[in-house]
């Protein structure tokens, strides 16, 4: 909590938080970042589940889309940190914020597994059932994380 208070008082964080233009820019980056992150990850998940791009190999699609997802993640982390720091003492104790972060972290772990394993799964005659469960969980977690993120915004006044 002391760390949160310190974050809130960093001069450049205060400047950004109090400027309508700058904080809107940070939100914009956060939105675009997660569109890229979630949109591309979800397509790979859907491919594993057999619902997207069935006529194409998994590995090249995953190889192409994951770097975009990680680019999105970079944007999300940078902007998300500023959003958090500006009101850290309010965010930190909020349950739904913690739930969101938990979901995002788990979804990211699943993403790394999918990226590493997709060449192996591609070599097998059929995608293993475990891979499908993983893809399904990743899909559900990302969709859940978006909802949790919006609930955070609804719960915390002034954002």
């Amino acid at each position: 909590m002391r760390l949160c208070e310190w974050l809130e008082q960093i001069p450049w964080i205060v400047t950004i938080t109090n400027s309508a233009v700058l904080i809107s820019l940070v939100w914009l980056v956060h939105y675009l970042g997660f569109f890229l992150l979630v949109g591309t990850t979800v397509v790979v998940d859907l491919r594993i589940l057999g619902a997207a791009a069935r006529n194409q190999k998994l590995a090249p699609l995953a190889g192409l889309l994951f770097p975009f997802a990680w680019t999105g993640l970079g944007l999300v982390i940078a902007s998300g940190f500023i959003m958090f720091a500006g009101q850290a003492t309010t965010f930190y104790p909020t349950a739904v914020f913690r739930i969101k972060m938990g979901m995002v972290l788990l979804a990211l772990v699943f993403g790394v597994i999918v990226q590493r394993k997709s060449p192996v799964w591609d070599g097998a005659p059929t995608v293993p059932t475990a891979a499908k469960w993983l893809a399904f969980a990743s899909l559900a977690l990302w969709i859940g994380a978006i909802l949790a993120g919006l609930e955070v915004a609804a719960f915390i006044p002034g954002i």
Binding site: Y31, L32, F35, G39, V43, F68, G72, I146, L150
Partner: peptide, 19 residues
Amino acid sequence: FIQWTHFTGLSLWLGTTLA
């Protein structure tokens, strides 16, 4: 939940478009 519908759709739409 309404915002969620909008943003989930947007993730799919813009994620794939920007890719």
